[in-house]
Simulated assay, not measured.
Amino acid sequence: MPLLMHYSGFYNMAVICVITLSMLLVFQTTVDEVSEGMCACKHCVRQQTHSIWFNELYDRSIPPLLTRENYVLSEDIYKYWKGLQKNRNEDNYTAVVEKLFSLFPDKSQYLDASPKRCRTCAVIGNSGNLKGSSYGGLIDLHNFVIRINMGPTKGYEKDVGTKTTHRFIYPESATDVDNSTHLVLTPFKVLDMEWLISAFTTKNITSTYKKIRPSVKANRDKVMILHPAFIKYVHEIWLLKRGKYPSTGFLGIIFALHVCDKVSTFGFGADQYGNWFHYFEKTSNKLRTGAHSGSFEFDTMMQLYLENKIQVFRGR
């Protein structure tokens, strides 16, 4: 009997060890999988899918924002970026960046992804299909509301909302933002970065290829700059080098895919009659410019919708 009890105790201990080890392995696998691909949203952007198309395009290792730690550009990225600068002889990139980060924040942003986070983001285009949409309340419910260029909210609150957390601009589309909004510069040339410095200091840069604002009202502590590598990534990977460079709106959408867990888009594409215009413009009721079926950006956005990676609100 003592011998039987001895073996019985050994057997029970072995079973307990096996169960404990199995639980640890399962728990570890679950944590790893969740941290890499899951979030607290019902549908998480960074969750891997069976779509070869999306998985090949979506690269979270590409930094969306420029910082002091990642500003050094590889040869291929610098060559690409120089190619956008219309033959300008600009070789002062390093000096300009060092000046940038003496004025503006230089730390990484939005690296806090976790299984407990559900950061919702709305990217607001400027399409006339927002008119009469009554999307304002829905837009303002999102954690981040990303607006593009000069798209106003005042006077259009019912359709476009009142909240703005990020506004994507370049010098030629600059507009003032309030103290709580991140001004996100889209630099297609070194001169764009020089303008940003000037806009907050000397205010001496007044033109690029056209006349521009010499200054802009914004919170210096909330200024961000898109990384040239990110612009190249969006252009060459997502848009397959279509067009001269990606639009500010499409850059905003891919930015949202990198920093948000759930992404919704508003104000992209034509209205229900096939008209293409800005919601803040006065237009004729008879304006018809077709459906822009050749717009690769819009087609790509709709593919993201079909892949269940973004929600698309088409308006009216």
Rank of each mutant, 00 (worst) to 15 (best):
T49S: 07
K107P: 02
E69V: 04
C39A: 00
P64N: 09
T94I: 15
T162E: 13
A40R: 00
G137A: 14
P171D: 06
H142G: 00
G155H: 05
H50A: 08
G83D: 06
L103G: 07
V72G: 06
R117W: 03
C118Y: 00
S127C: 04
V45L: 01
N55W: 02
S133K: 00
I148R: 01
Y93M: 12
S35R: 13
L66K: 08
L65K: 02
P115N: 02
S133I: 00
I139L: 05
T175M: 13
V97E: 03
E56D: 15
C118H: 00
E36L: 10
A113G: 11
P64T: 02
P115F: 04
I169P: 04
D112Y: 06
R117I: 03
Y71T: 12
F101I: 11
W53N: 07
L73D: 05
F104E: 07
C121P: 02
T165E: 08
Q48T: 09
C121H: 02
G132E: 14
M38V: 04
S134Q: 15
P105D: 11
Q85P: 00
I146D: 03
V72T: 14
D140M: 06
H43V: 14
V160A: 00
S127E: 07
R167V: 08
P63G: 08
L57P: 00
Y93N: 10
R117A: 05
P115W: 02
I77D: 03
F104N: 07
F54K: 01
S74C: 09
V72F: 10
S133Y: 02
F144G: 00
I77Y: 03
T120G: 05
S134A: 15
K107R: 13
F54Y: 09
R117Y: 01
Q109K: 14
T120S: 11
K107W: 08
R68W: 05
G132C: 10
E75A: 15
I139S: 03
H50W: 05
S173W: 05
G136Y: 09
L66N: 07
D140F: 05
D59R: 14
C41W: 00
K99C: 13
Y78Q: 13
F101P: 09
G151R: 00
P105M: 11
E56K: 15
M150T: 14
E157F: 03
S61E: 09
W81T: 04
G37P: 00
Y156Q: 05
S133L: 03
V96Q: 08
S127T: 07
R147Y: 08
Y71L: 10
L73K: 09
Y135T: 06
K79Y: 07
Y156H: 09
D76H: 12
N129Q: 07
V177K: 01
K99E: 15
R119C: 08
K86C: 08
E157H: 08
V34A: 15
V96Y: 11
G37I: 04
Y58T: 08
P64G: 10
V177R: 01
F168T: 06
G132T: 11
T164S: 13
Y156T: 03
R46H: 13
